[in-house]
Nucleic acid binder design. Structure first.
Lengths: 185, 185
DNA sequence: TGTATAATAGACAAATTTGTCTATTATTAA
DNA sequence: TTAATAATAGACAAATTTGTCTATTATACA
């Protein structure tokens, strides 16, 4: 069960996988430790508590997620193509077995008002995404900020619904609508 | 702690409240029983297991939710107003303290592939909603089914994001976009 | 080499989880 | 009234939860 990397990395990587696959509340510390092949004391010395581990998971997930989407966007040069590439990113994610939707939305559904730091992490992730989409939109000649939030809502709807239906149609529909909105044939 | 109704109703009503407020996994059977003021054996004789109770919760939630949204829609006569009224329904829900987004999306985030019946309940709810919005749209003179899924995605995005931001702006934006899509001034 | 640090295994605690079972008390219907 | 049914309280089980603590072994550094 030993995995590459030092104990801290092994714990975080295993927790990230299990929190996403099974959910945060449905995943016990013991399973994380067992699958990571790491001692319990290592977890508590590095993270302090399960909640701190959950927060570290969200922080790392944000970094990784934006790295992925920007990599997809930066393949394109034309502003229109760059904007539309965000949906290609979703299209690429979905067919992967074990797709479970957005890590942040999932965490928000599990953690109530008793874990405000979790909620804040989710909010910050979504704010950053909203801002990013806004920037991609206004870089398109002739486009203003007017439709930015619509693009954002379509993107979010596409993530959530592609999970519900386990199908790409929401992503394709959202992309088509955005193309239409910005007057692209 | 006793509540009106027979034990079965009391259990379901209390479970519905707690599952929504705290989440399904975060809510223990014992808390439900305590707050419902009902004996444990009553729960197991009426529902059989926690999962069955969860399924009963989703089924009742679907009925109640559609009763609420159709009541809002049926206040209006003009097809355009009827379509837009679905966003008024969301606007009405959100300011209620304790708004936690969509019960079905939340449950989907908590239950993995190990509970396929839960996932099916969610899927059926969303399929019904998608169909309903489709009908409301094509009832508008000059509208075809072409934009139906876009309306659906905007609606879903509005629910999820109004929870994230704890604000009505996603609902207002979605409504405005739909009005624009159907060429309404 | 010697020493501080890191990591390990695993026992342990205290609480909580779902679910079962028994024995008693209400309620309802014939 | 009698008898079947429904509901109750609560003990109990077996597993699991997060977190702590001890004692031992590796590792890294001076």
């Amino acid at each position: 069960m030993a995995r590459p990397g030092n104990p801290k990395e092994k714990i975080l990587a295993t927790a990230a996988r299990l929190f996403y696959e099974q959910g945060y509340n449905a995943t016990g510390i013991n399973q994380v430790l067992e699958e990571a092949g790491v001692a319990k004391a290592s977890l508590y010395s590095h993270f302090g508590s399960k909640e701190e581990l959950g927060l570290a998971y969200l922080k790392e997930a944000r970094t990784a997620w934006f790295a992925g989407i920007t990599a997809m966007v930066e393949k394109k040069k034309a502003p229109v193509e760059r904007l539309l590439a965000v949906f290609d990113f979703l299209e690429q994610q979905l067919p992967q077995q074990g797709f479970k939707g957005c890590r942040f939305i999932n965490m928000l559904a599990e953690t109530g008002d008793s874990q405000p730091e979790m909620q804040l992490q989710v909010l910050e992730h979504k704010r950053k995404l909203r801002k990013y989409l806004h920037q991609l939109l206004i870089a398109v000649p002739g486009q203003t900020a007017a439709q930015a939030d619509t693009v954002y809502l379509l993107f979010e709807g596409a993530i959530v619904e592609s999970k519900v239906y386990r199908d790409l149609w929401p992503v394709k529909t959202a992309k088509k609508t955005v193309r239409l909105l910005i007057g692209q044939p």
